[in-house]
Design a protein around this nucleic acid. Structure first.
Lengths: 248, 248
DNA sequence: TTTCATAGACCGTCGGTCGGTCTATGGTAT
DNA sequence: ATACCATAGACCGACCGACGGTCTATGAAA
């Protein structure tokens, strides 16, 4: 084959980008190195020149994903909002189930929560918790100073705990959405309930007045679920489906 | 090879038992079907006569493990203890980091928290949460009636949340123990702190007086860590090590 | 001329399939 | 009661394609 030399940085990013597409499209285990190099028209050796192993690729990919997340969230922490506003905004921006791009979201949802993607999910979660803990700790300190939070224990420990709880909520909601036996009404009711439970819990942890923590308005959830179901019925015979089925 | 016919139930249990040993010994991905059938002296076909796939084997194994856990915990729920005693006893019995059998525990710890075992861990956690939620919900109801808990939301939702938080604590402690830069003193201090944070959180969630929830006494943690370090230094040149290294 | 990005043939291992064999069992004919 | 035989299903192991990963040769750029 004709030989094409590119700047290492560009090549590497191409590989990372293609890998991300494939992983979110058909899953980590189901994506073979061969898939990636065929798509890019490069050879095995080229791939292994840039990455030591498939796992190495995954790790670097997750690093770049969480880095981007970090850069999205850091302006919030550094803004002049109140602690409560920062807290709520962070959770809204950080949650996976936000509806900025429904079609992409649905594919991701369906693929990400497969057994074979447990590693990917869990690595993202861990890295996220690691990178975001200091940010949340800052917000907690700010809230304590403002007198709206009353956290007596180490802000870092509490931040970590809150992030874990947030991740649990996120996962719980995603799994609800993947259940087959759902109507829009039932789904949005269940989600509402879960959110209420977790918001309440976080308020208890932060010792902040009831109603302070608000990830989503009731209306938002319903809109979100509505869009989700529309997208879901569309997905049967469109590009989305083709993308999703490619692996089987 | 000579043909040996056994009762299906016995054969199947042999396979499950061997699989469990291998999975906890060298990991799920690192254990090949070949490993298992070689150990048992059976043929590939025999294995696939009983299990549809490697994943099927894992699922059935996890079912049997969580079933056993269930049968250990159900007497506690059905006993005549107070809600708080039940709650604390359940957590002590249910946590992975209990020290009944330190050498086995250390191997499990080291292997279980490998990347390649993420699936195994996460499946166990999910099945556990699923099976234990009703039990914890019962305890919460009892506590409400006794007037020691004041949970206003759905006991099932709260039970699920508490189990998730418990699992988070469990994992956090296990990861602390795996860190290389630890002295016994530092480790037991960090564990104490984490436990304090999570106990406090659970008390907040259950609205129960401070000090009600007590997974471990301070002394217990220190003993536990001491045993752990003894075992850890032993492990360098013994059977444990050989077992552990077998896969590499 | 040196350096290193690139190519692609090659390797061992893995999960899984398949055609077929052996054996325990229970109904049936004697 | 005993001998027979058909059936179910436990068991075998050669075989397969696909996978992750290695290695050496080679071409392009500096």
């Amino acid at each position: 084959m004709t030989r094409e030399v590119k700047k290492p940085e560009i090549r590497k990013n191409e590989i990372l980008a293609t890998a991300q597409r494939f992983f979110f499209d058909k899953g980590f285990e189901s994506t073979s190195i061969q898939d990636i190099i065929d798509e890019l028209g490069i050879a095995k050796g080229t791939f292994y020149h840039y990455f030591n192993s498939k796992t190495d690729l995954l790790d670097q990919l997750i690093n770049s994903i969480t880095d981007e997340m970090y850069s999205v969230l850091i302006p919030i922490v550094e803004s002049d909002m109140t602690a409560i506003d920062k807290f709520n905004t962070m959770f809204r921006e950080g949650s996976a189930f936000k509806m900025t791009n429904p079609e992409v979201f649905i594919i991701m949802l369906k693929v990400l929560f497969t057994d074979e993607n447990t590693i990917l999910r869990s690595k993202i979660y861990r890295k996220m918790v690691e990178k975001l803990t200091p940010m949340y700790a800052e917000i907690i300190k700010q809230g304590n100073e403002e007198g709206v939070f009353h956290v007596s224990m180490s802000p870092d420990d509490i931040a970590e705990l809150l992030l874990q709880v947030g991740a649990n909520l996120n996962e719980t909601i995603c799994r609800l959405m993947l259940r087959k036996d759902m109507t829009p009404k039932l789904l949005s009711h269940l989600i509402q309930t879960k959110i209420a439970v977790y918001q309440d819990t976080m308020e208890n942890i932060l010792h902040t007045p009831h109603g302070s923590i608000k990830f989503l308005q009731q209306g938002n959830t319903e809109d979100m679920v509505k869009i989700y179901f529309q997208q879901l019925t569309n997905a049967h015979s469109t590009d989305t489906d083709r993308l999703y089925q490619r692996g089987y």
